[in-house]
């Protein structure tokens, strides 16, 4: 076999990322960070069911982390950026890889979730931007009170249009995770006849938990369970 020269760390990284495998591994690793964040975010928000004081104290605690909060935000931002960059480049490769489409194409094994990753992804991104403007910075909120998270959530979700967008986007997020969680393991090379069926179950359970948990917030406000 001929020689491959990888003289520096940069060359090594470039060689890795240049390949279709490297880009997918970047998607998987950044995706796993985002998956864990989504779970933590949802569990934290569950405190809305324990009343205004509990939720606002939790928010104040997070704000009080100061530099720590910004470190987490920067890591998340980097993950989102890399996840989107590799997704975009892979999507372009996909378009390039089959220039002439099939007249007739059937699928045998592909799930709806797997087929729609390139749709659910960008819609969830649009939602995240709206979500940040809505509840974090307040520009997209009709009655934003800094520090009073409980009030912001109730007032925000009282608008059925806003709530509907949250519900739709979180169902799409759940669909994204339905394929994504298992896919992460497969991409980084974890596949074993003993564990893969369980990882697929984990993926489905993860999607259902995140989906139901997140959709419950706007529904609870709209139905008056939380007020």
């Amino acid at each position: 076999m001929g020689t491959i020269a990888l003289n520096s760390g940069l060359e090594r990284t470039a060689f890795f990322y240049q390949s279709v495998v490297g880009k997918k591994v970047v998607m998987a690793v950044t995706g796993s960070v985002l998956c864990l964040f989504v779970l933590g975010h949802m569990l934290g928000n569950m405190q809305i069911y324990q009343g205004a004081e509990k939720l606002n104290n939790y928010a104040a605690f997070l704000q009080g982390l100061g530099a720590g909060l910004w470190a987490v935000r920067l890591v998340l931002l980097a993950c989102v950026g890399l996840h989107i960059l590799s997704a975009y480049q892979l999507w372009r490769l996909k378009l390039d890889a089959r220039p002439t489409p099939y007249v007739k194409k059937a699928t045998v094994a592909t799930t709806y979730a797997a087929r729609t990753m390139t749709w659910s992804g960008p819609i969830v991104l649009a939602f995240i931007i709206y979500h940040l403007l809505h509840f974090t910075t307040g520009q997209a909120h009709p009655d934003f009170r800094r520090g009073d998270v409980y009030h912001n959530v109730i007032a925000g979700f009282s608008n059925p249009a806003a709530s509907l967008f949250y519900i739709v986007a979180n169902i799409l997020l759940a669909i994204h995770l339905y394929h994504g969680v298992w896919s992460m393991f497969q991409t980084v090379g974890v596949n074993h006849p003993r564990y893969t069926p369980w990882l697929k179950r984990l993926s489905k359970a993860y999607a259902w938990v995140i989906g139901i948990g997140n959709v419950s917030f706007p529904l609870a406000v709209l139905t008056g369970i939380v007020k």
């Binding site: 076999m1 001929g2 491959i4 060689f15 240049q18 390949s19 279709v20 495998v21 880009k23 997918k24 892979l90 490769l93 996909k94 390039d96 890889a97 089959r98 699928t107 045998v108 094994a109 592909t110 799930t111 797997a114 087929r115 990753m117 394929h179 298992w182 896919s183 497969q186 991409t187």
Partner: peptide, 24 residues
């Protein structure tokens, strides 16, 4: 390294773990 790089160069796409190939 060499086979993955060659596969990329030849213009094949990437794996999205749909399992379609395994099924057919």
């Amino acid at each position: 390294m060499r086979m993955v790089l060659k596969m990329t160069e030849e213009g094949f796409g990437y794996c999205t773990n749909t399992g379609e190939c395994e099924a057919i």
